[in-house]
Design a protein around this nucleic acid. Structure first.
Lengths: 145, 145
DNA sequence: TGTATATTTTAGGGGTTCCCTAAATTTAAA
DNA sequence: TTTAAATTTAGGGAACCCCTAAAATATACA
């Protein structure tokens, strides 16, 4: 029973960004880079990172980078699964290009329920790759048959 | 140029509720009823109503009810259009029932962009009635041809 | 190896939004 | 007209997110 602290929508944005950097691009995630990317000041990034750290979603070594914990990775993957399934919906149904689909998905992913995402996933044949060729994480609750 | 103040997601919830009461059920919208409906205290409702009133979205006569202004009605209809188009998506694509579609739509409607909604509207042939038989307001920017 | 420069973190605030309780006030009903 | 119900004020509080200025640390290069 991991007294799972909830993640705010803003924190979710950080998690997705950090995950992409750390796990998909293998770059060292730097405070300043995150700040530029999100349009806030470095001090703000440090603060949010400290909150995420208190929630055990990442590991923070002062003046060095951050590293997502197992829980942080799991949370980021849940979020990115939602994001990418929504991208599939928008490219398939609405013929959006990858960029636009990503934009719209970013506005909704955090709010989309797990069951909604799984229903969409099923409707589109359990896709494994999103429009920008990244992997779509699977959900054990999302039955293929 | 109506220096249009933005509406928070919570305020949007109030607007939708008040619109349904006032315009679709012709009931007098009472503070206590809203409070029960949203699970908050009456004093909280009064406060939010005062904010909406300052944004010129409704008219508040102390100790009597509220009445949406023209701007309030327009805003509520924009929100409900989004809500109902999303309901169409979920019932058509995912075979959700009206109730469930409404639940999911409630989580996303506020965040869905106008253009996304119009794209979905087009994809589903510009529906005019939502799953629970309410009217789907039209958007002049949503071209039928 | 120092020292200058860049990066990051702390300290100290501020604003918004949403919520609450308790005490008034006003309305409506008996 | 009194009383009960509904509503509003008054006065707080907590969560979040953001900022500037100053301190601490790391890094890069003479």
């Amino acid at each position: 029973m991991s007294a799972e602290l909830s993640v705010t929508e803003n924190e979710a944005k950080y998690l997705k960004l950090i995950y992409r950097g750390q796990c998909e691009e293998s770059t060292k995630v730097r405070t300043t880079a995150v700040a530029k990317s999100l349009g806030v000041r470095p001090a703000t990034v440090t603060e949010v990172i400290q909150n995420l750290s208190e929630k055990n979603l990442l590991w923070h070594r002062r003046y060095h980078g951050v590293e997502l914990t197992k829980e942080g990775i799991a949370e980021a993957q849940k979020l990115l699964r939602k994001h990418r399934i929504l991208e599939i919906l928008f490219t398939d149904l609405l013929k959006y290009n990858a960029q636009r689909a990503c934009n719209e998905a970013s506005k909704l992913d955090y709010r989309a329920s797990r069951s909604l995402i799984n229903a969409i996933c099923k409707a589109y044949g359990h896709p494994e790759i999103c429009p920008c060729k990244k992997v779509i994480f699977s959900d054990p609750k999302c039955k293929k048959k």
